[in-house]
């Protein structure tokens, strides 16, 4: 493409099919305690894949 460069295709709709295991970190247990910062966390399943 000449006019558009895709940085990430986005996978949010795909996660509806397989997401929701609940093993991820609770947002306020990170560094915040005064805001909600879900978007900067990682999926626990993707972390497991990374470690493998």
């Amino acid at each position: 493409m000449k006019h558009i460069k895709t940085i990430t295709p986005g996978t949010l709709t795909e996660t509806v099919k397989k997401g929701g295991c609940g093993e991820c970190q609770t947002s306020c247990q990170s560094a915040c305690k005064t805001s909600c910062t879900v978007g900067n966390q990682s999926c626990e399943q993707s972390l497991i894949v990374e470690k493998k």
């Binding site: 709709t13 997401g19 909600c36 910062t37 879900v38 978007g39 966390q41 990682s42 999926c43």
Partner: peptide, 20 residues
């Protein structure tokens, strides 16, 4: 911390919709 964002391995929709 507040500029962290995981574009490829971020939280699933269930997490993002549910809140804290």
């Amino acid at each position: 911390f507040h500029f962290m964002i995981d574009l490829t391995g971020g939280p699933c929709a269930a997490k993002r919709l549910s809140g804290c």
